[in-house]
Design a protein around this nucleic acid. Structure first.
Lengths: 159, 159
DNA sequence: GGTTCTCCGACCTGGACGGTAGGATATGTC
DNA sequence: GACATATCCTACCGTCCAGGTCGGAGAACC
């Protein structure tokens, strides 16, 4: 499995916020009920999104969360990264150094490469590309139409 | 993490077999020593590859494994699928019915969709495409050159 | 017959995932 | 000022499984 429920719940949460964009802030309790998710767990998940500046919180009665940016400007690579942390195809494939987008394999100490590297690079590329390509606005639109207009949105790139 | 060490070790094992393609069968012990991997664990991993008809075994002294097909004809989607089982981006995203390549989300009972589906579809597509595009022969070539000719093989598709 | 292999099942263990509990703090409303 | 409604924050906990070990049974070659 690539992602955990953190990503699943987190993205669903974002979609709910996206649906009520422009309106009053949405409370976690409301979201938890709508989506059938455990409230206490959602609290921890939304904290990740807040730390990444994807959502803003209003405390107190009639408070809740809202997107800190229009849904069109929220790309899923950012969201998923906030929720799951580094998305690597393999445990040896993590970039520690801050600031760098480089990925490296720790099997060979020097600059030497382990043979699987090419494969994981490609997979990693495929995932990040797919995530980056998808905006929250798209997902909101997708959830709005539900069963109405079957195939307005295409899944892949133009072949 | 997308893949476990099963995929990592399994692919490295395949690469070793690919390197000695045409020659005598290669014993697990030899592979384990070369790659620095636990022999007992490799046994279980190679069993998966054998079940998927990717490798053939010769038992007894001077026995070992060899590819059951030229490395050019072994695509990594097949290998990884044999090693990891269904590669799904999310636990709700598994295809049980045999024969079908369809993926489905179990959150909504009917034909109804959960909103995150579009995203996982795209990610899934990105991964499988990357895996399918890569042949074992490529990885063997990649491991042969090592540090000699830095960038003969391109990572991504042609932009 | 001994050695070298593949095979096969049972077993163990640490850590993460998914979730809970309980309280502290902030903000509206009456 | 109570009180209800929210976000916050930290500690805790059970379950599952990845990752690995162990021991032994069959097959083939010398």
């Amino acid at each position: 499995m690539i992602f955990t429920t953190k990503a699943e719940y987190g993205v669903r949460l974002l979609i709910e916020l996206g649906k009520s964009e422009g309106g009053a802030p949405l409370s976690l309790k409301a979201i938890a009920e709508r989506e059938g998710l455990p409230l206490a767990y959602l609290e921890r998940i939304v904290a990740l999104l807040k730390k990444a500046n994807l959502v803003e919180a209003t405390r107190g009665a009639h408070g809740g969360y809202r997107l800190s940016r229009p849904a069109t400007d929220i790309r899923m690579d950012e969201a998923v990264h906030a929720l799951e942390g580094q998305v690597a195809p393999m445990s040896c494939f993590v970039d520690d150094r801050p600031g760098a987008g480089k990925v490296l394999c720790s099997h060979h100490d020097d600059g030497d490469l382990c043979a699987t590297r090419l494969l994981w690079m490609r997979v990693h590329g495929g995932v990040t590309e797919a995530l980056h390509r998808t905006t929250l606005a798209e997902l909101v639109a997708f959830s709005h139409r539900d069963a109405k207009q079957p195939e307005l949105i295409q899944i892949g790139t133009d072949a």
